[in-house]
Simulated scan of single mutants.
Amino acid sequence: MGRARVVASELAVGHGARRVLDGLDLCLRGGAVTVLVGPNGCGKSTLLRTVAGLQEPHAGTVSIDGEPLAGLSRREIARRLAFLPQSPLVPAGVNVRELVRHGRYAHRGAFARHTGEDRDAVGWALEVTGAEALAEARLDELSGGERQRAWLATVLAQRADILLLDEPTTYLDLRHQFEVLDVVRRLAHDHDIAVGVVLHDLMQAAAYGDEVVVVADGGIVASGSPEAVLVPEVIERAFGIEVDVVRDRTTGRLACFPRHRPHENPEPRS
């Protein structure tokens, strides 16, 4: 893995005056996918939004490449960090190429003319996400997986070295989930991008994460490699369920299964 791009220290985040997570230390590195997992409502999305500079932390600091996030303008942040929310609004009548061009606003402003550098960035983003064939299609006519690739291309057109994704596979069928996560992993490993992504599926976290951070009970329960983190005791503590974790002999991937207790036989009726 590459150098630290985003570092959060003693971070506390929340909604309004209410803290939901406290005392967090988090590091996102170039060339690596860091997956955040945890039960619903534990604060994963709030943490990601705070790291993206979209809301103020209750305490602690976030830095990008050694510079405090609080001292950077929104445009300076957007040139280094791209954020894709859970359910971005779909502009009416916009085609994919037009949408991806919006990712260049951080570099040229809303009303400046497109430059050759802008065209190169848009073309590169469409290519690496496999969305070139969709460039002239209207966004509202695409499937869920195609639309998500278009949104990925849009944030990539920012040419940011840090990518934050909040549940990018939500509402997608299994095939499109894997397609999107394949793109995300390729972006990190082939283009040295630091990726932080919130996922619900622990097996996807194991398959696609270089590091996994388990969030629960107001803080970070465990962090490290999937093999070190996705173990029965951590999963039980975070999710309240007993599981067995096994490794597939063919693929080497981890899988977990609920630990079933033997059913008690009811007393026979007389």
Rank of each mutant, 00 (worst) to 15 (best):
3 R>N: 13
130 G>P: 06
114 H>Y: 03
265 N>D: 09
124 W>Q: 01
203 M>G: 12
226 P>I: 05
134 L>R: 01
212 V>D: 07
168 P>H: 11
149 R>T: 06
45 S>E: 00
37 V>H: 00
15 H>W: 14
118 D>S: 03
129 T>D: 02
94 V>M: 13
142 L>D: 06
38 G>S: 12
82 A>E: 06
244 D>C: 12
175 R>T: 13
216 A>I: 02
151 W>G: 02
85 P>H: 10
120 D>E: 15
140 D>W: 06
181 L>R: 01
13 V>G: 07
50 T>L: 09
138 R>F: 12
114 H>I: 02
200 H>D: 01
177 Q>S: 14
60 G>F: 06
154 T>L: 15
65 D>S: 12
126 L>P: 06
208 Y>Q: 09
212 V>S: 04
152 L>G: 00
103 G>Q: 09
23 G>I: 05
24 L>P: 05
11 L>V: 00
239 F>S: 04
4 A>T: 11
104 R>S: 10
93 G>Y: 09
75 R>A: 13
167 E>F: 06
10 E>Q: 11
8 A>F: 08
149 R>E: 05
66 G>K: 11
243 V>W: 12
20 V>F: 08
254 L>C: 08
2 G>R: 04
212 V>E: 01
241 I>E: 10
42 C>S: 15
9 S>N: 05
85 P>T: 04
169 T>M: 06
90 V>K: 04
222 A>S: 15
258 P>R: 11
107 H>F: 05
51 V>E: 01
65 D>G: 15
240 G>I: 04
6 V>F: 00
134 L>C: 08
240 G>F: 02
15 H>N: 12
197 V>P: 13
226 P>C: 02
161 D>A: 07
106 A>W: 11
209 G>P: 03
243 V>T: 14
213 V>C: 15
